[in-house]
Design a protein around this nucleic acid. Structure first.
Lengths: 342, 342
DNA sequence: CCCGTCAGTCAAAGCGCTTTGAAATTATCT
DNA sequence: AGATAATTTCAAAGCGCTTTGACTGACGGG
């Protein structure tokens, strides 16, 4: 069933039927109702292919996931972010195009996305320190929203981000308040923008108490369980071990928990841990007293907000860039306690 | 730059240019080269919108993720599966459309996908026991491949699946060989097809040794860390606790590990655990002796195989359904050992 | 009663490709 | 050389929508 058939059946022109269904005002309400009913009855939905060509829009948003050619690690937060974004798209009648792009041919991929007209806008995932994609997207004039930020960039742009700096400042501050003086940082890779902001927050908190950071208890790596385990274990087995950890992800923290236990310490007693928690559905920190003390911000909500922002930007391009900064919530659980006496 | 402009610039008709770029034989090789070079120079790529309308294909594969309206849990294996599929699509020039659909209006969503012409085929995720989607897709004549299977269905269909039954048979068999007699099963939700197959394998292994299953040490739930923890803990604290666990996912097993430690047992000594491992990148079971003893099958490879199968099915519809059964690999790690003497 | 206005409807053009069927050119064979 | 076949190119139709600009009646004011 296509427009032609439907309008023939109704004895109306294609124009009228199209306008009736798209809510244009120059159509009689009685006619509109008649058209709507016929469309519902025959299960008519306009072909997106034709609609795209006619309108010049694709009603599709691209999510471009950079894949490092070296390690091929996938970010576990992706699904939650996409699910959040998807809710916004669904409401607006948009679709989600998912692309995994090797970081080597990102440039080509973005250009093709535009010239082939596959998307009306993109969400930029995993921004690095001075991310070249942002300049490229400006040049291509493709609407976009960044999940996160990229420091050291002259241009301004739309983003949704968590206040990573402040979150880690608070996490570190909490441990300092509890009397900890040797606090380790297990961070994500610091080529990633979010990781440098987290480190900055950590360092600032130490500095504000007149403490200096010790590189021996600061690690950065992919946020996997085994790397969290390895880093924590070697720090705990070294001289002058930390009494507390600030950890960049729940998955990493699980490795830390194991290392703590294996080295004969008790979590929340001998060793305190504060974790950044993206509130992933299958790692939900449940119970009346949650296991980990966390600084938490739902990545699913971030996805939703980023998608909504992008749709607005597409609808009417703003003169000023839109920016949303989310604050993480500090929840005290069982993994923190006063610093042990020496 | 569009076809019209490009062909004008070359002094050729649109027909010839189109054919040259699409590799049709009725075009002179010299001409083809000239066209290709001009296209590359001007960064010309045919508009997918127009191409779609003209060919009646969308060059897009839909991945429809059912979201349970009750719990909203997202499957952590999704990203790996999609990344695998994406590789296949990229090679073939296809795109990946991702849809999260509340299980209530799945029917409507699939129908719309077809009438709006958004996709050339779909991958069915998370099949349930007698999944109604399979019949629907047959009716809609939309090419599809199921990731997993759905028992109790008259019709045949294309699928890629792991031999879950055999994997759990072997896992249970390994524990039995080690002398364990009270072996618990921590399964996924048994409305899911894969979970019932896993249970069947477990039961069959017990039966083959003349053992009967005890419902008190068989649990099924969402495969989260906390549910794994809760289930394991309550079993370990009950009378006649198990000496071994067969666990349906690494994330769940992490909860089990915690419960084992908290109840003062040692993993691999007092309690043995075998885990089904989807080989997710951020949970990779590394080290010379891996931590967990696992039955492993890469979900990323499954994604790739499913995508390739679907593309073949689209290219030339097979008379017989295509089916790929993957065998999981059993790797012995540190989490298993002989049953303790009573 | 005529004319301007407005609401409602329509025919046709256009979006940028692919593909059909025909035409023009070149090669091959007697 | 002429006839036939093979190769190369082309003009135009078509994919299913949206949108422009024109048209038709109905209505009310002068």
């Amino acid at each position: 069933m296509n427009l032609k058939e439907l309008s023939a059946r109704l004895g109306l022109s294609q124009t009228t039927v199209s306008r009736a269904l798209n809510g244009y005002p120059e159509v009689n309400e009685a006619t509109r109702r008649r058209v709507r009913e016929a469309a519902a009855e025959h299960g008519y939905h306009p072909s997106m292919r034709a609609k795209s060509l006619a309108t010049g829009q694709s009603f599709t948003i691209g999510h471009v996931i950079p894949i490092s050619t070296k390690n091929e690690l996938l970010n576990p937060i992706l699904t939650d972010f996409l699910a959040g974004a998807s809710e916004a798209y669904e409401r607006a009648g948009y679709d989600l195009l998912l692309l995994f792009i090797a970081d080597l041919d990102e440039d080509r991929a973005y250009r093709e996305l535009v010239t082939r007209g596959k998307v009306d806008g993109v969400i930029v995932h995993g921004p690095k320190l001075a991310d070249s994609r942002i300049g490229l997207l400006h040049e291509l004039e493709l609407p976009f929203v960044v999940h996160g930020r990229s420091t050291q960039l002259a241009q301004d742009y739309n983003w949704v981000d968590v206040n990573n700096r402040h979150a880690f400042y608070r996490a570190t501050g909490l441990l300092l308040d509890l009397g900890h003086r040797r606090i380790a940082l297990l961070n994500g890779l610091e080529i990633m923008d979010f990781a440098t902001r987290r480190r900055d927050g950590y360092l600032k908190a130490l500095e504000d108490r007149g403490l200096s950071a010790d590189p021996a208890i600061m690690a950065q790596d992919e946020m996997t369980e085994s790397l969290g385990y390895n880093a924590a274990k070697s720090m705990l087995e070294a001289d002058n071990p930390p009494t507390a950890f600030v950890v960049a992800s729940v998955i990493m923290a699980i490795g830390v928990r194991l290392a703590v236990q294996e080295t004969g310490r008790r979590l929340g007693k001998d060793i305190s841990v504060v974790v950044f928690d993206d509130d992933l559905s299958y790692f939900r920190n449940v119970g009346s007293i949650p296991f980990f003390t966390t600084i938490r911000s739902s990545v699913r909500i971030a996805g939703q907000l980023a998608a909504e922002m992008l749709l607005e930007v597409i609808r009417d391009p703003p003169t000023e860039p839109k920016q949303t900064l989310l604050e993480a919530e500090l929840t005290v659980g069982q993994s923190t306690g006063p610093a042990p006496n020496t």
